[in-house]
């Protein structure tokens, strides 16, 4: 992959706001200009060149951050296009208010992945914390478009109040997955914690493993062969080809409808 590479050589022991670094923001800048950029660290500002080694050429379509750590927050903030590749772990609010492009993180991520997301793809190879796809600070609803793919596990209240879009989790999710969901889809290949879909109005939570029992606000409508499911599986497989086998075993599904406490138009699909 061509483009600019920022290699973290002096890992900060403080939280660093990386929201200024996107492929589009750095495109056209010379290496010296990029080294001189200042990043927010609490109330202070630090010079990028003191922490990162800069190599390659800035381009609108690609930016790589090497040796990333949990102290790098807000990576891919407002990303509109191109690929932001993060090798290593990252902190909170990765992909905050993202609108397009691809944010790929090879390690684990903190809380608030894809808050207020409007488009694009976030792909995290490891696990992520709480509130993924939820509302951005000050917003009422969560993500409104785009896709979040989590390779391993996801924390609590994933997809809270999400309005549209897709979250796919390769492992387990914590409590309150899809709580107060307005629309959109969440696919979980592992197990779910308690409070699944609590207060959801609409939207779909699709579980690839049988055995879960939704809460009291949900009613079993029956077992069905849904033509929509292969469409969803094909779409997920187009984003993550290796998961086709894990999903294609889904045949007939139980359709649980709820949450009755909030209109009851949401659904949880569980293999029959």
């Amino acid at each position: 992959m061509s483009g600019l590479t920022l290699t973290l050589v002096d890992a900060p022991d403080f939280a660093l706001d990386m929201s200024a670094l996107t492929p589009a923001a750095l495109a056209g800048k010379r290496v010296a200009q990029i080294r001189a950029l200042k990043l927010q660290q609490g109330r202070k500002r630090v010079v990028l060149g003191d922490l990162f080694e800069v190599s390659g050429e800035a381009a609108e379509d690609a930016l790589t951050i090497e040796n990333a750590t949990r102290n790098l927050h807000r990576l891919g903030y407002g990303l509109c296009g191109g690929l932001l590749q993060v090798n290593g772990d990252c902190g909170d609010e990765a992909g905050l208010r993202m609108r397009g492009g691809v944010l790929r993180i090879s390690g684990n991520a903190g809380d608030g992945v894809g808050l207020g997301m409007r488009g694009g793809l976030i792909e995290i190879s490891g696990s992520a914390g709480d509130f993924a796809g939820g509302p951005a600070p000050g917003d009422v609803t969560g993500m409104k478009n785009g896709s979040i793919i989590i390779g391993r596990h996801l924390g609590r209240r994933a997809g809270e109040r999400m309005r549209r879009g897709l979250i796919v989790v390769g492992g387990n999710v914590g409590e309150g997955c899809g709580s107060q969901m307005v629309a959109g889809s969440i696919v979980v290949l592992g197990h779910c914690g308690p409070g699944l879909g609590a207060g959801m109005r609409r939207g779909s939570i699709v579980l690839a493993k049988a055995g879960a029992t939704p809460g009291a606000g949900f009613t079993l409508a029956g077992e069905f062969e849904l033509a929509f499911l292969p469409l969803l599986i094909n779409h997920v497989a187009s984003l993550k080809p290796g998961w086709r086998g894990r999903l294609s075993a889904m045949g007939n599904v139980q359709r649980w409808v709820g949450d009755a406490a909030n209109g009851g138009m949401g659904e949880i699909l569980i293999p029959a």
Binding site: G165, F224, L226, A227, F228, L232
Partner: peptide, 24 residues
């Protein structure tokens, strides 16, 4: 009003409830 919209990538599908299940 019971129909469900699903946007997958650039395409939007409608799931309309009918007596044998859903019309997609």
């Amino acid at each position: 009003g019971y129909q469900i919209s699903k946007k997958l990538g650039a395409k939007r599908y409608w799931r309309v409830p009918v007596m044998d299940g859903e019309f997609v």
